[in-house]
Amino acid sequence: MNDIVISVRDLTKRFGDFTAVDHISFDVRRGEIFGFLGANGAGKTTAMRMLCGLSYPTSGSGTVAGFDVRTEGELIKRHIGYMSQRFSLYNDLTVWENMRLFAGIYGLTAKQTNERATELLERLNFSSERNTLVGSLPLGWKQKLSFVIATIHRPDVVFLDEPTGGVDPVTRRQFWEMIYEAAENGTTIFVTTHYMDEAEYCTRASIMVDGKVCALDTPARLKQQFAAESMDEVFRTLARGAQRGE
């Protein structure tokens, strides 16, 4: 099995004169938790959209789960999971119906759906809420459920776009435990976040400034490199040089 799950070379996206993503290159290994950091407007979302097969790169190349981002977008979509920064399950459907819907979207059979959904609910201690409307759950639970549903089809890579926005510290902690567990089971995690303490949890972190990847290493070595106490400091040092505003 190929050990590199995401491989990107000189990936670029231009909108007219504006270069949103400027020749970024990096590799993500299987089972890694890859932190994708950057200020607002640094180009994170655009880069992520290209990796998800939603946006076509202007130049450069890349593969995700072994498929080309330029030509095999549809295949990529089948092998990745995605959780957006906005809560994106259906509030007027029950927990079970949401799971069944997304399992169906990814082509799971009825039997597989039943097995996996039951198993996931048990792991979350959520079995009693199976017929509860998602809209009536607290936000923390919703986020956990979103994550579980994003991985229901056992994707190679899960893209998490600021998954813990607006969630209390305890739930964030629990959320990261789920991420760790998934990574241990061989799922690669590609996560963007604003919380620099979360960056510390990543296997490796990259920091984007003005469309370019300025730094990429393990949190420990990044701190060493920038002679910083915390990732927060590393981030501030780099972001100070940014030309683009919010």
Partner: peptide
């Protein structure tokens, strides 16, 4: 508006 469209677009549908 709610944001579910985004998730659907990333899916293979």
């Amino acid at each position: 508006e709610v944001g579910t469209m985004e998730v659907l677009l990333v899916s293979p549908v």
